[in-house]
């Protein structure tokens, strides 16, 4: 069953065309990774899906709803802030630089969305948040501020914050790139266990081995387009595209 369907997505920043017509389908329960060189449009694609960026053409359909824009009498208009906020809550996003709320504890970070967006009662939100913190192995750090946590711990709190909102789709944007090498493992293990439980994920990553081992399917982006895609095992073993071959050789997988 198709959960996310992107059709002909285009996006430009001034004169630079960053996305040149991206088509992508993601099924429910599928883990798809996106690889490619810097500037190939991977992160922009994720940010469009989470409506953090507007886009110029094409459409993004999430769970049968075209998101971000309404079409009326042939003109296309960006939705209002309230509606955008509601649609954003359908996807969860984890960022490269964690982006935890610095003034809130780990628990407070996970609870904020539950209280204000999902309008849960405080006790209920706290139970659910503690539940998620323990799933990422951080129940003993619940009352710590982000500044008192290691990078790996912060990123796991960010994962708990995103997942606690019960999103239909989770977007991960180079979530290990800002981590010390010895902390990468704990974060990737968390993602692996989520993948096993059937969480639908779209993962932008520079960790080629991770993409190969965890993602059902891998997308290679080049110059704002999907240059090649296929089952991860096959794509890494037997790349067809010349640029992909070059990219994988340099990534030294």
């Amino acid at each position: 069953m198709t959960l996310l369907s992107i059709r002909g997505l285009t996006k430009r920043f001034g004169a630079a065309e960053v996305l040149k017509g991206v088509d992508l389908e993601v099924n429910k329960g599928e883990v798809v990774s996106i690889i490619g060189a810097s500037g190939s449009g991977k992160t922009t694609l994720l940010r469009c899906v989470n409506l953090l960026e507007d886009f110029d053409g094409g459409e993004i359909v999430l769970d049968d709803v075209a998101i971000g824009y309404v079409k009326r009498n042939g003109t296309r208009r960006r939705l209002g802030e309230r509606e955008l906020a509601r649609q954003r809550a359908m996807t969860g996003m984890v960022f490269q630089s964690f982006n935890l709320f610095p003034h809130l504890t780990a628990l407070g970070n996970v609870m904020l969305g539950l209280l204000k967006v999902r309008h849960m009662a405080k006790a209920e939100a706290k139970t659910l948040a503690m539940n998620w913190l323990s799933r990422v192995g951080l129940s003993d750090r619940a009352m710590h501020l982000p500044s008192q946590l290691s990078g790996g711990q912060q990123q796991r709190v960010a994962i708990a914050r995103a997942l606690a909102m019960d999103p239909k789709l989770v977007l991960l944007d180079e979530i290990t790139s800002a981590l010390d090498p010895e902390l990468v493992g704990e974060v990737l293990d968390t993602i692996k266990s989520l993948a096993k439980e059937g969480t639908t994920m779209l993962i932008v990553t520079h960790e080629m081995r991770f993409a190969r081992d965890v993602a059902h399917r891998t997308i290679f982006m080049d110059g704002g387009l999907i240059a090649e895609q296929g089952p991860s095992a096959k794509l890494f073993r037997n790349p067809g595209n010349a640029r992909l071959k070059e990219f994988l050789k340099r990534a030294n997988i």
Binding site: R86, T91, A162
Partner: peptide, 30 residues
């Protein structure tokens, strides 16, 4: 106020007023 932190507020579905009240202002005050 780090832009990424505001994006994180957006990403969990906080609307503009909620972001101002619960994310931006506490950091701004400090």
């Amino acid at each position: 106020v780090p832009k990424g932190v505001v994006d994180a507020g957006r990403a969990i579905g906080l609307n503009g007023l909620q972001r101002a009240l619960y994310v931006i202002m506490p950091i701004m005050w400090r």
